[in-house]
């Protein structure tokens, strides 16, 4: 059964023919998802923007090798994840603090009551506590092992299936499930420890 629908198949044909308008349309269609995936993997906005641009350059260069054996989005995400992994290694070697932006945003008001139930902060008077939770979660994601982080983000943020995550990461489905399970447990522990509150 072909994995590409007609729209994607036509788009790929035009991309292979180096149709620049088709490429621009592709960028417009995927730029938000690719950028947010890069940001969640790298944790730094400037690096994520640079990485996301590089993803599309690689897509442009490699589109001739796309065989349609997976969905176009899966293929693009695979490129994004591979580049993010390499960039992450590079940044760690350079000892770049991937939390720069988080720390800048961390200059917030006085601490809130940490006994709040962190999964139900919705009211305006709880906004500050909500911002704090947001920062804690972002920081906790960056503290996860990269191999756990990629599976967790692809599943719980991007809503991809286990099969798609397996295609993107090159891992068997069982390993994907296991990593997601362990990543959730790690994340929960990190967030609860930082906030001093339980996630129900």
């Amino acid at each position: 059964m072909p994995l590409l629908d007609d729209t994607d198949a036509r788009l790929v044909e035009r991309l292979v023919a180096r149709d620049e308008r088709a490429f621009n349309a592709l960028v417009r269609a995927y730029e938000r998802r690719v950028f947010s995936l890069a940001l969640r993997m790298i944790g730094n906005r400037a690096e994520a923007e640079d990485l996301a641009q590089e993803v599309f350059v690689q897509v442009f260069k490699a589109i001739g090798t796309f065989r349609g054996e997976s969905k176009l989005s899966t293929w693009i995400f695979r490129i994004a994840i591979n580049l993010a992994k390499n960039r992450g290694k590079y940044l760690r070697v350079r000892r770049t603090d991937a939390h720069d932006e988080l720390e800048a945003l961390d200059e917030r008001g006085p601490g809130q009551d940490k006994r709040e139930n962190v999964a139900r902060i919705e009211r305006p008077d709880e906004m500050m506590a909500g911002l704090e939770v947001e920062q804690v979660v972002r920081r906790a994601i960056q503290e996860l092992e990269p191999s756990f982080r990629e599976c967790l983000v692809l599943r719980d943020v991007e809503d991809l299936s286990y099969g798609e995550i397996g295609e993107i990461t090159g891992l068997p489905e069982g390993t994907v499930k296991s990593r997601i399970h362990r990543a959730r447990a790690q994340l929960k522990e990190l967030v609860e420890r930082a906030l001093g509150a339980k996630i129900p």
Binding site: V27, E31, R32, R40, A52, V157, R184, K188, V191, I199
Partner: peptide
């Protein structure tokens, strides 16, 4: 609970996405 927390905490990332096209071109 973890999924809900992640989604809510990261929801704004995509909203603030920059315009990538000029840089890619």
């Amino acid at each position: 609970a973890v999924r809900a927390l992640l989604k809510r905490s990261l929801a704004r990332d995509a909203e603030d996405a920059p315009d990538l096209l000029p840089g890619i071109q």
